[in-house]
Computed example of a mutant assay.
Amino acid sequence: MVTVADVRALARTLPRTTEHVIRDRIKFRVGAIVYVAFSRDERTMGFGYPKEQRDGLVAAEPEVFFLPGAADLRFNWVCCHPERLDHDQMTELVTEAWRMVVPKFLARQRLGD
């Protein structure tokens, strides 16, 4: 089970990340770009994910992942139930979402690829 505290602990290690509370929702971003956001009740989490791959992710684990609302389908975004993630999944999803919003050199520097 993953909590906001788990995501916060990881996000704090990712360069250029800042945490904000906007309309009672916790969001992690780099500059103006949000890469992880929680619902007000913290029961769902949205994160950056390539649009062309998200249908496959949702189809593979529909009990964990789901598409965002219609207004957000235009973005590289998918949602999940964080309590159904394990720590390794969360680490991969949050790190990859962060990678999508930082300069390539910074991602290579941090992650080594």
Rank of each mutant, 00 (worst) to 15 (best):
R23K: 09
V94D: 02
D86H: 01
Y35Q: 01
L111Y: 12
R84G: 10
T91A: 14
A107R: 01
V2A: 04
S39W: 01
Y49W: 13
D72Q: 14
R99D: 06
E96A: 03
W98H: 03
E83W: 00
L111N: 12
K51N: 11
D86P: 03
T3D: 01
Y49P: 07
F66A: 08
F38H: 02
V102E: 07
A32Q: 14
D113F: 08
V94A: 11
P50A: 11
P68S: 04
R8C: 03
H87I: 14
H20I: 13
S39T: 14
K27V: 10
V36G: 05
T44M: 02
W98E: 07
V7R: 01
V2K: 00
T3K: 07
D88A: 15
M90Q: 03
M90S: 06
G31W: 03
F65H: 05
L57E: 12
A9K: 06
F28G: 06
R43H: 12
A37P: 07
T91E: 03
V102S: 05
R108N: 13
I33V: 15
E61I: 10
A59S: 13
R43P: 01
N76H: 14
D6S: 02
R12E: 14
K27M: 12
L67G: 04
A60D: 12
A71R: 11
E96S: 13
R16I: 02
M90I: 08
F105P: 07
V58T: 05
D55T: 09
M1H: 14
P15Q: 06
D72Y: 12
F65R: 03
P50K: 11
L57P: 09
A11N: 08
V34W: 00
L73R: 15
R54E: 07
E96C: 10
L85N: 04
H87N: 07
R29Q: 09
K27E: 09
R25T: 06
V34D: 02
L67E: 03
E63N: 08
N76M: 07
G56N: 04
V30A: 04
R84T: 08
V4T: 09
R23F: 13
H87Y: 10
K51E: 08
R29D: 00
L57F: 11
G69T: 08
F38L: 10
K104L: 09
Y49D: 08
R74C: 04
M100V: 03
P62I: 00
V4G: 01
R8F: 06
A60N: 01
R25K: 15
W98I: 09
M1T: 14
D41F: 02
R8P: 00
V101Q: 11
M90E: 07
K27L: 13
L93Y: 05
M45P: 09
R8A: 01
